[in-house]
Amino acid sequence: MKNSLINQSFKNAKKENRPALLTYTVAGDNTKKKSLEILKSISNYADICELGFPHNTPIADGGQIQTSAYRAIKNGIKINDVFSIVRNFKKSKKDKPVILMGYYNMVYQYNENKFITKCKKSKVDGLIIVDLPYPENKIFAAKCKKNNINFIQLISPTTSKLRLKKIINDSHDMIYYISMLSTTGGKLKVSANEIISQYQIIKNHNKSKNVVIGFGITEKTIKSLKKADGLVVGSAICKEITKSIKKRQNTVTNVINLVKRLKNKIK
């Protein structure tokens, strides 16, 4: 997928001598309209936007993303709404890559093929399915590729050497390295050096793959990892949304400001 928007965004960031900034928000948090607004405004600063399908049994997510997901579900978000958010977003931001992220049960209930067709129609650029690891994801990943959708493989500190090699060989344009043993939103409990050296091992296998680091990335930690091709911030943004709602402040403004600050740290 040489000309993918995802590849292009990494190239653009590299030209500016910085890692790509990837943001994660939950679709429908806290309403459909609001989450589209948030997505549009942060995309002015983020290079790639990840958008989460809220699920009520998210086994790999920490408190912040759970809170966002429950809030979105409570406000009635449906799978089709997530696609319509992407479609609307792409109307004005056609060059900004969107990666959808979710749990396999939603894909399974929607039907794999129908799900992929819908992704294609809505111009989704990539997919992360948290609980569909390699090699169980082989068939699904191949279907994605056939439809020009990036299936994003995850690698964690527990991934063995042999497995690492196989996953990289089977990956598309982007690989997601999980910084530490944690659910999303945990406190970074490993040193930046250690994370970067693991990251480097992945890079050394295949330099052409864009490797991003996620989990535990906040305003405090983002600078220390700027060597990576890309950095993902999710829970910190969800937390900001929760905080803004509680304080009855403008969610959009607060989130934009946070994303701006994050971007400045890696410039």
Partner: peptide, 21 residues
């Protein structure tokens, strides 16, 4: 070999981190 009974029940739908353990 993928852990499914009757071809469709069971399996191991887990995050990457848990693959090794």
């Amino acid at each position: 070999k993928n852990g499914f009974w009757g071809g469709k029940f069971g399996g191991s739908y887990i995050p990457e981190t848990l693959k090794k353990p």
